[in-house]
Design a protein around this nucleic acid. Structure first.
Length: 489
RNA sequence: GGCGCCGUACCCAAGUGGCUAAGGGAAAGGUUUGCAAAACCUUCAUUCUCCGGUUCGAAUCCGGACGGCGCCUCCA
């Protein structure tokens, strides 16, 4: 299915045209592994996971590559502080990152190249840049010569002359020149190279790994908006100079940053980070996903703890509508039944049938997940409305069949992937500890209340309800006599 | 100093030239219920930070002001 996507390079929404029909190669800048990933990283991971899922669901053969930066200044500094080997530290955080991604319900990338496994590729790329006159060695380091690339600044719309230049460093000629290879310093990990022992600069690794996994020209390159300059600008310079001018990435897709409610962005170095694993202790992964997908991927998202219960409530609303629909029985011609049952029945049928096309239409236009979700909620309301019809339980099945198919298709963006019991159990497992009660205690109170109700001791029954309500447990008596309970979000 | 982004109801948020300004939450009233919860119904922006301009027509385009951010140093 064709789609349009905002391209940072041209600053406009463009129709996507693949290099090879039906195929998409996607490279997303991954983590520098020196600490646990926070929910700002999670936003980027979830956005691109969702995008790839949807691409595949709509028929694309997508190859998704996400790297690890497993050697760099911060890793080395942290390892030194902890008295740990940098490689061991990086591996530890890679393992923890994988755990986090699994907990978030993300599909594994097709390739996850690491810098330390790609040194040869990186060195060969730097050699090509030196040979072509785009890089120069000085005192064991190699620098990219920004002045040698006239398109420098095109991606981020920067003029090299206007940039604040950093402090001059040994052997560096231009203020905007950046390191391709860093000469070893005492106590640092290093690899042999034609320029002596050292390690890769930050930007060159992505150029090298992207070429290795996806070829000289990538279809879509993704990452956080904060990477546009200098990281992605430098990747363009390196790759296009090494490849004789061939376009590095045809579409640049950048996600907006998660900011604190104060407006500042969340960052490990800013010390204001909420880690993924901390958040997933109290919220289901799909609630976090819905929280992200409610907002367009390019918009800044101010993190607000209070928004998470809302997101969980929204998710529960979708799950509950699905459960309501699943319980409707009957068979026959849906259009005939709709005519017999009236406007609400026709509405469910119509919205259910139109959903998938509507969702895709929204996602095809710069991946507008917010609009797609709006349609899902309209459908959920229609299902619930139909459920008020006295005959819906016996006859509604055929009417809600398209709606159930529609809700199932939300799995293509990673939502409603669980069965209802699993979802409810997850909420209880994650939220009950915060409320200071156990499921057994709740069940006990509910049993006592049931007895009081049988005895028609309404005051006693209501006292128990109040007691549970004080613990944020909502008790629901079903028409068939059963009593269920939910945690009030 | 340079390059950008954003400002839509009480809150979150879609909409970027023209049909009723999606959707969720909150709030108020109602249906239902032993009481509740959930669900449903109704109400809730003649208006899109402000001021000009373009246009038959603008939240949407242009200019300016005010406010909030991002990048230029590590950052998803």
């Amino acid at each position: 299915m064709d789609f349009r996507i905002y391209n940072t390079r041209t600053r406009s929404v463009e129709a996507f045209a693949p290099q090879v029909a039906g195929r998409v190669g996607l490279y997303v800048c991954g983590m520098t592994v020196y600490d646990d990933a926070h929910i700002g990283h999670a936003r980027a991971m979830v956005v691109f996971d969702t995008f790839v899922r949807w691409l595949r669901a709509t028929g694309w053969n997508a190859r998704f590559v996400r790297n690890f930066t497993d050697v760099d200044d911060k890793i080395i500094r942290r390892a030194t502080e902890l008295g740990e080997d940098p490689a061991a530290l990086a591996q530890r955080y890679i393992d923890r990152f994988h755990e986090d991604m699994l907990a978030l319900g993300l599909a594994a990338p097709d390739a996850e190249p690491r810098v330390t496994s790609s040194i040869g590729t990186i060195v060969r790329l730097i050699e090509r840049l030196v040979e072509r006159g785009h890089a120069y060695a000085a005192e064991g380091s190699v620098w990219f010569d920004v002045a040698s690339f006239d398109r420098y600044g095109a991606l981020s719309n920067q003029q090299p002359s206007e940039l604040r230049s950093e402090d001059p460093q040994a052997g560096k000629r231009g203020g905007a020149d950046f390191a391709l290879w860093k000469a070893v310093k005492p106590g640092e990990p290093s690899w042999e190279s034609p320029w002596g022992p050292g390690r890769p600069g930050w930007h060159v690794e992505c150029s090298a790994m992207a070429e290795q996994e996806l070829g000289e020209t990538i279809d879509i390159h993704g990452g956080g908006l904060d990477l546009v300059f200098p990281h992605h600008e430098n990747e363009v310079a390196q790759s296009e100079c090494a490849h004789g001018g061939a376009t590095y990435a045809r579409y640049w897709m950048h996600n907006g940053l998660l900011t604190m409610s104060s407006g500042q962005k969340m960052g490990k170095s800013l010390g204001n980070a909420v880690t993924i694993r901390a958040l997933l202790e109290t919220y289901p992964a799909e609630a976090l996903r819905l929280y992200y997908l409610q907002t367009h991927y390019r918009s800044p998202l101010p993190f607000d703890e209070a928004a998470l219960p809302d997101a969980l409530g929204m998710l529960a609303r979708l799950y509950e509508a699905r459960e309501v629909a699943e319980k409707m029985g009957g068979e026959g011609d849906p259009d005939g039944i709709a005519r017999a049952l009236g406007a609400d029945a026709l509405e469910v049928l119509t919205l259910g049938r139109a959903f998938r096309a509507g969702m895709d239409e929204a996602l095809r236009e710069d991946f507008n997940t917010s609009r797609a979700l709006g349609l899902a909620f309209e459908l959920a309301r229609a299902v619930n409305r139909l459920s008020n019809h006295p005959k819906s339980k016996k006859l509604g099945g055929p009417l809600v069949a398209p709606a159930l198919e529609a809700l199932a298709s939300l799995a293509d963006i990673g939502l409603l992937t669980l069965d209802t019991a699993t979802f409810q159990a997850e909420i209880k497992a994650k939220r009950l500890p915060m409320l200071g009660v156990t499921a057994a205690q709740v069940e006990e109170l509910i049993a006592a209340r049931a007895q009081a109700r049988r005895d028609k001791e309404w005051a006693k029954a209501d006292a128990i309800r109040d007691e549970l309500e004080a613990k944020r447990i909502a008790v629901m008596d079903r028409p068939d006599g059963a009593t269920e309970w939910r945690i009030r979000l």
